[in-house]
Computed example of a mutant assay.
Amino acid sequence: MTFAFAVSMYLVIWWIVLFAMLPIGVRTPEEEGESTVPGTPESAPHTPHLLPKMVATTIVSSIVFAVLYLIIAERVITIDDIPFFPRYEHVQ
C-alpha cells in the first residue's frame, strides 16, 4: 500500500464517519425551548458541537483505517477466504 493510497483512503473514511456522526445528539432550538431566529430553518441545530464530533470522528476513523490496513497490507483476509467469491486459477 503506497503512502498516497493510505492517505486518500483515510480521508475518505474520515469524511464518511464525520457525516455519520453529525446527526448524533443534535437538538433544534425548539427542542431547547428557544425560538428560532428569523431566516434560519427550523431544523437547524441549536449547538452542533463540531469539535467533539471531529475528535470522535478522528478516533473512530483511525480504528477503521487500522483494521482495513491490516486486511489489505498484511493480508489478514484474502479473497480466497471469502466463501462466495469465485475461485480462479492463476495464469502463468
Rank of each mutant, 00 (worst) to 15 (best):
M1K: 11
M1I: 12
M1R: 13
M1H: 15
T2R: 08
F3C: 03
F5V: 14
F5W: 12
A6E: 00
A6W: 00
A6V: 00
V7I: 10
M9K: 01
M9S: 07
M9D: 05
Y10K: 02
Y10V: 02
V12Y: 05
V12F: 15
V12W: 10
I13L: 14
I13H: 04
W14Y: 12
W15L: 15
I16H: 08
I16D: 08
L18H: 06
F19L: 14
A20D: 04
M21I: 06
L22Y: 11
L22T: 14
G25T: 10
V26G: 06
R27W: 08
R27F: 12
P29I: 00
P29G: 04
E30L: 13
E30M: 12
E31V: 02
G33R: 03
E34C: 09
T36F: 06
T36C: 04
P38Q: 05
P38Y: 11
P38W: 12
T40N: 10
P41S: 05
E42V: 04
E42W: 08
E42C: 00
S43F: 14
H46N: 13
H46R: 07
P48S: 01
L50I: 14
L51E: 03
K53N: 02
M54I: 11
M54K: 12
M54P: 00
V55I: 15
V55E: 15
A56Y: 09
A56E: 03
A56G: 11
T57Q: 03
I59Q: 01
I63Q: 07
V64H: 05
A66F: 09
A66V: 05
A66M: 07
A66N: 03
V67G: 01
V67K: 01
L68V: 11
Y69L: 07
Y69P: 00
Y69R: 00
Y69C: 00
L70V: 04
L70I: 05
L70G: 15
I71F: 05
I72Q: 06
I72L: 10
A73W: 01
A73V: 02
E74W: 08
R75S: 15
V76Q: 13
I77N: 13
D80Y: 10
D80T: 10
D80W: 08
D81N: 11
I82Y: 14
P83S: 06
P83N: 03
F84S: 08
F85K: 02
P86R: 09
P86W: 06
P86S: 11
P86T: 10
R87K: 14
R87S: 13
Y88S: 06
E89A: 12
H90S: 08
V91L: 14
